[in-house]
């Protein structure tokens, strides 16, 4: 296929040192052996529970910190793990992140104009103070904050959560990035505004052909937003494939567990009971073999001995399971 990949991760791992005297020298395996390729214009959803390594993956892609090992390729060129510094401006312009919490990701002492004009100033395409103001106005309009004059001189605390998240998204759009990393952008918003934020991101994708990594714990939201889904558990990808496949014909027991745990009102009242026990494992001392095996209802002897290889279940649909 003639798909062009904008972003490629090959066996990327991230280990954080534990800062505790008792556990000196040990590491947290936040992300282990993560590989995926993001096509141009594609929305890939990373789904998993808290602590599964979703946000670490996004932060690695955003170069907020370097990976411990593995290869990271952007636009066909390998990005040196050492170059995570603030100087990497050109990369930052192309890859932007939307943060989860709209209440803490905007500077409370700056007006919306100051917040949204910063990207233009930093990336050096400011067209004078007057030009800047009209550009910010256009930007506000593009995220549905209309009329812009009503918002441009306000402070973040004067806006509602949904409006603040729109400002966050406007900040991301301002530099016209090639890749957007959206870290649970709707999880802290009220249900009635959630959909409009999701729709706005979908529309932007359609008009600009921007690639998106959409992080969420909500499988139904991932289905709505994405072309492909990668299911993460305890720092590793367990299953990856086209969205409808992964949800409709889930292969990995963990994906099935997630699927059965999600609310499904249309199914009626009585449903199968969950078959699981235990909690998410410690990432300092992760289970040997498959990380899901202590909770897996289909556990076999092999599972605790080695990590399963990738297996192609269907075209483009891979799972990491011995079954």
């Amino acid at each position: 296929m003639a798909d062009r990949f904008i972003l490629e991760l090959e066996q990327v791992s991230k280990h954080f040192p534990v800062r505790s005297f008792r556990r000196f020298g040990q590491v947290v395996h936040a992300m282990d052996d993560v590989s995926f390729r993001l096509k141009e214009g594609e929305v890939l959803a990373l789904v998993g529970e808290s602590g599964s390594g979703k946000t670490t993956t996004a932060s690695i892609i955003a170069r907020l910190y370097p990976q411990t090992s593995g290869k990271f390729v952007f636009e066909g060129k390998e990005i040196d793990p050492g170059r995570s510094g603030k100087r990497n401006l050109a990369y930052r312009k192309k890859v932007q992140m939307i943060f989860q919490d709209p209440f803490s990701s905007l500077n409370p002492t700056h007006t919306i104009f100051q917040i949204l004009s910063r990207p233009y100033v930093i990336h050096g395409d400011a067209a004078g103070k007057k030009g800047l103001r009209s550009r910010v106005q256009v930007l506000l309009e593009s995220v549905g904050l209309e009329p812009p004059a009503q918002f441009i001189d306000k402070f973040p605390h004067e806006l509602s959560g949904g409006q603040r998240q729109r400002v966050n998204i406007a900040r991301t759009f301002s530099v016209e990035p090639l890749v957007i990393l959206a870290d649970e952008p709707t999880s802290m918003l009220d249900v009635s505004i959630r959909m409009s934020i999701m729709n706005m991101m979908l529309e932007y994708r359609e008009t600009r052909n921007v690639s998106t990594v959409y992080i969420t714990h909500d499988l139904a939201g991932a289905r709505y937003m994405s072309d492909r889904i990668a299911v993460m558990y305890a720092g590793m990808i367990m299953e990856i494939g086209p969205t409808e496949h992964v949800i409709g014909q889930a292969f990995h027991p963990y994906t099935k567990l997630l699927r059965s745990a999600a609310p499904a009102p249309e199914k009626g009242l009585k449903r199968q009971k969950l078959v699981t026990h235990g909690d998410i494992p410690s990432l300092i001392d992760p289970p040997s073999g498959c990380r899901f095996h202590p909770r897996c209802p289909f556990k076999m002897e092999e599972c605790s001995k080695r990590i399963p290889d990738w297996k192609e279940v269907d075209a483009g649909h891979f799972a990491r399971c011995f079954l």
């Binding site: 249900v191 009635s192 959630r194 289905r223 249309e266």
Partner: peptide, 19 residues
């Protein structure tokens, strides 16, 4: 209309405008 579903066809949903 604000909760996407896990089965059935995917349709564009609206949510509720305003606050």
């Amino acid at each position: 209309n604000a909760f996407p579903s896990l089965s059935g066809p995917i349709r564009r949903m609206g949510g509720i405008e305003g606050k």
